[in-house]
Structure formats: structure tokens, C-alpha cells
Amino acid sequence: MIVDESYKLIDAKYGDLINNLFVSDVRIGALLSAIRLSDGSCGVASTHFERSCPVEVKQRYFGPFSPGKIVGRKVSELFDQEYESEVVPILKVAALNAISPALVARNSKFKIFEEIDPLELTEIHSYSTVTMVGAFKGYINRIAPVAKRLHVLEMNPDSLRGEHQHHYVPAHKFADVIPCSDIVIITGLTLINKTLESILETVTP
């Protein structure tokens, strides 16, 4: 999985900086979750649960990263988890978001753009076919009038209404539209629901 592989690469190069990091605070919200690490860095991730909590106690997760046990755990423990409750992938992405900025800033090969909208770094033309994974209304309003064609992959058809309804494409049909796209915009939620790798396989370089 991309998230775990990313952590392994970071650990191999910057292990001396992150091995002692632990979770100092965590918040799990309805839409977003946040984590604060012992060095003061913070990261957020989308909250995504595919199923409701099991009714029977014996089916529930009571591992080291279950509620009430998360704070004080080392980040390395989080990525060592073999069994993942639905909260673990959320915490992993949030932790990577907390760790990454400081490490990227140390590497002169990368440039961090602050306070800028990603669309400002993207050239969308009248002949462009754009596919969005996730219905971001603000982006749809800006892309639809410019691009030749806009596909919005979503699980919920009600995410698009009115004049934008015709842009809707069922999420499971991603392989039908992404290979024909000039630009693909992907939500970070795909890291948590583990669909990013299959989506990237259909992207034409």
C-alpha cells in the first residue's frame, strides 16, 4: 500500500528524526480527523468508515489504536499494525501529513507552495478532458465552463445536482474515463479507502 511504502521510505532516510515521535493528541470527527505529534506537528485526514461498529463486543477492535489507547503511542507502532481497524488508515494518513512538511523542507529537490490553490498550478484549456475523483463543488464550478469535458467520479449521484448532474460518473467506472483524460484530480480520501493504486494504474502518463 502506498501509505505504508511511503512511511518505510521516510523511515529509511530520516529514521533518526521520526523514530521517537509519538501521538500527543488525536481528534476523530465526522468529516475530518486530526493528529498532533510530540514535536508539535499536526496533520489531518478525511474520516471514512465503510461500515458501522459491530454490535457484538467480540467483533470489535480493542487493539493498541482503539479509542482511549491512541495518545502516547509511537508513530512507528502505528505503521507496524498488521490488523487495521477502520481508524488506523485515517491515523496513518494524518501522521504522514504531520511528518512530511518538515522533511520535504529539508530536501532542496522539492519546492513547497504555500497558500496557493492547486488549480492555479494546473493549465486547463478548452480542449482539455478533466476527471475528478470526488465532487468538489468549488472546482466543478471553475472547471466546467473551461474544459471541453468534465467527468466527476462519485459513489453518491446526489453529490452533483442541477446543471452539473450530467458530469456524474459512477465511481466504479473510473477505468472507462480516466485513460481518456488529460488531467486527473484525485482526492486524498483514496489513500484511506485504498482505491488510489487501482486508479493510478489507469492514468495515461
Rank of each mutant, 00 (worst) to 15 (best):
L31V: 14
R51T: 15
L37G: 03
V57D: 12
L37C: 02
I35P: 08
L9F: 14
K13W: 05
L37K: 01
S46V: 09
N19W: 03
D39E: 03
F49T: 04
L32T: 10
E50M: 10
I35K: 07
L37H: 00
K13T: 11
Q59E: 15
S52R: 12
S38R: 02
L32D: 12
R60P: 01
L37Y: 00
A34P: 00
N19Q: 15
Y61E: 03
G40T: 10
R36I: 07
L37T: 02
K8A: 13
S46F: 12
L17W: 04
A34S: 10
A45D: 06
V23H: 00
D39A: 02
R60S: 04
K58F: 14
Q59H: 14
V26S: 01
P54C: 04
D11F: 15
L32I: 11
E50N: 09
P54D: 02
A12F: 12
L37V: 04
A45L: 07
R27H: 09
I10D: 06
D25S: 09
S38K: 01
Q59S: 12
K13P: 03
L31Y: 13
V55K: 05
K8F: 11
G43N: 06
F22P: 01
S52D: 11
A12H: 06
K58C: 08
N19S: 14
S46H: 13
C53Q: 11
A30G: 04
K13D: 06
V23D: 00
L37F: 01
I18Y: 04
F49H: 09
Y14N: 09
D39V: 03
D11Q: 15
I10V: 14
A45H: 12
N20F: 03
L37W: 00
L17S: 07
K58R: 12
R36P: 00
K58N: 15
V23E: 04
Y14D: 02
L17I: 11
S38A: 05
D25I: 02
K58G: 01
E50I: 00
Q59L: 13
D39Q: 05
S38G: 02
L31E: 12
I18Q: 07
D16S: 07
L9E: 13
L17C: 02
I18F: 05
L37E: 03
I18S: 04
A45V: 08
V26K: 01
S38C: 02
L9V: 14
I18H: 03
V26M: 07
A12K: 13
G29T: 10
D16R: 07
L21V: 13
L37I: 06
S24F: 00
K8Y: 06
Y61I: 00
H48V: 11
E56K: 10
L37S: 02
N20W: 02
R36V: 10
S46E: 08
E50F: 06
F22Q: 09
E56F: 14
L17R: 11
Y61V: 04
R60E: 06
H48M: 13
G15E: 12
G40M: 12
S52V: 15
V55R: 11
A45Q: 11
Y7C: 08
S33Y: 00
L32F: 09
S41F: 01
R51V: 10
A34T: 12
L17K: 14
S38D: 07
L21R: 06
V23K: 00
I10W: 10
S24R: 08
I10G: 03
C42M: 13
R51L: 04
N20K: 15
G29V: 10
P54K: 06
R27W: 11
R27L: 09
R51Y: 15
K58Y: 14
D16Y: 08
